[in-house]
Amino acid sequence: ITEAFGHQFGKNTLLVDWMPQKDLLGHLKEAIYHGVPVVGLPVFYDQYDNLLRLQDRGAAKILTLATVDKEDTFLKTVKEVLLSRLHRDQPMKPIDTALFWIEFVIRHQGAAHLRTESHRLPWYSYYSVDVFLFFLFVVAVITFLVVMTFRLLCLAKCLKEKTNQTKKK
């Protein structure tokens, strides 16, 4: 690669032939947060979709195999990549946000309006037992109907054979 672009890469540049997707996506999330420019060269599967999402957020640029061959395209693309100001742009520091919400809950005696309604659900709804039983019932009804249809078809065939045998005698 160094011959193709005529530049030496720094010690913090990682060039690999293959990387597990979980590691790659984790690396991309870290890159967004820390403002590391991402230049992607999608080849197959969902790489293009992942890079397109990053590009839409201003954290990446996408190169294609056709454009990467041009002399300064790679270097120009690296310089154009926007950093992750969007992800770190917060009105307050995290500790100030935490203090605000703690004081908010204290001021409003527990802030019941912020609690989820799940704690009021019966246990069978909370664990979706009712949904599971409904689907089990639907499967049982369909199975019953299929079995009964086959039994009726077999019974009709048997009756037809009996009538054919009686007619022959």
Rank of each mutant, 00 (worst) to 15 (best):
L65D: 08
K167F: 04
R53D: 06
L41G: 04
T77W: 06
D72W: 03
P42K: 03
V43F: 12
Q109W: 03
F44C: 11
P91T: 01
D89Y: 12
A31N: 04
I102C: 10
A60L: 08
L121F: 06
E30W: 10
T163N: 13
I1R: 11
L28K: 00
K11F: 08
R57C: 01
K76D: 00
L25F: 02
E80Y: 09
G10Q: 00
A140C: 13
V105A: 07
P20F: 01
Q8Y: 08
Q90H: 13
I106S: 02
K162D: 05
A140I: 10
K76P: 05
F100P: 04
A140S: 11
E103S: 03
S84G: 08
A66G: 15
T149A: 04
F132L: 04
I1Y: 10
H34G: 01
K29Y: 11
H27L: 14
K11C: 11
L145T: 07
K11A: 10
K169Y: 04
Q8F: 09
G110E: 07
F135M: 14
K79F: 13
E3Y: 13
A60F: 05
M148D: 15
L41F: 03
V138F: 08
M19N: 09
L136A: 14
L136H: 06
T73E: 01
H113V: 02
E117D: 13
L15Q: 08
R120T: 11
K76R: 06
Y48Q: 15
D46I: 10
A60P: 04
S84V: 03
F74A: 02
A31D: 00
A60Q: 04
R107Q: 06
D130R: 04
D96Y: 02
F135W: 15
K157F: 15
D23E: 12
K93W: 00
I1Q: 10
H108T: 02
Y48D: 14
T77K: 05
K93S: 01
L41K: 06
V81K: 04
P122V: 07
T64D: 06
P91E: 07
K29L: 14
K169D: 09
A60C: 03
K70I: 10
V147H: 09
R85Q: 12
A59S: 09
S118N: 06
S128Q: 12
L145M: 14
S118G: 11
V131S: 08
A156K: 15
D96C: 09
V43A: 02
F44T: 09
Q21C: 01
D49M: 15
S84K: 03
F150M: 13
K162S: 10
S125Q: 13
L15C: 01
W101Q: 03
